[in-house]
């Protein structure tokens, strides 16, 4: 019960992880509507290949 109360109070930020299949470069950005795992992402900042979304998850914001 306590966990659920903590979960409810915590504001989670949802991130999308894009990974380049060629060089393995990972990019973390805020989730955008329409994102889904395995969808093509943006161009890789390192090698220019098209990245793929490999993960979408929620994370508590860093404590200030």
């Amino acid at each position: 019960m306590m966990n659920s109360q903590q979960d409810r109070k915590a504001k989670f930020i949802v991130y999308t992880i894009e990974e380049c299949p060629a060089c393995g470069q990972k990019t973390k950005r805020a989730f955008q509507l329409g994102d889904y795992v395995t969808k093509d992402g943006s161009k890789c900042s390192k090698c220019g290949n098209t990245t793929k979304i490999t993960s979408i998850y929620a994370e508590a914001p860093p404590k200030t």
Binding site: D7, V14, S55, Y57, A58
Partner: peptide, 18 residues
């Protein structure tokens, strides 16, 4: 995972388990 975590947006801990 808990019931809340199972039906709400995937938590980092779960995604990292993959």
């Amino acid at each position: 995972q808990s019931i809340l975590e199972a039906i709400t947006v995937m938590r980092k801990e779960i995604a990292e388990a993959s």
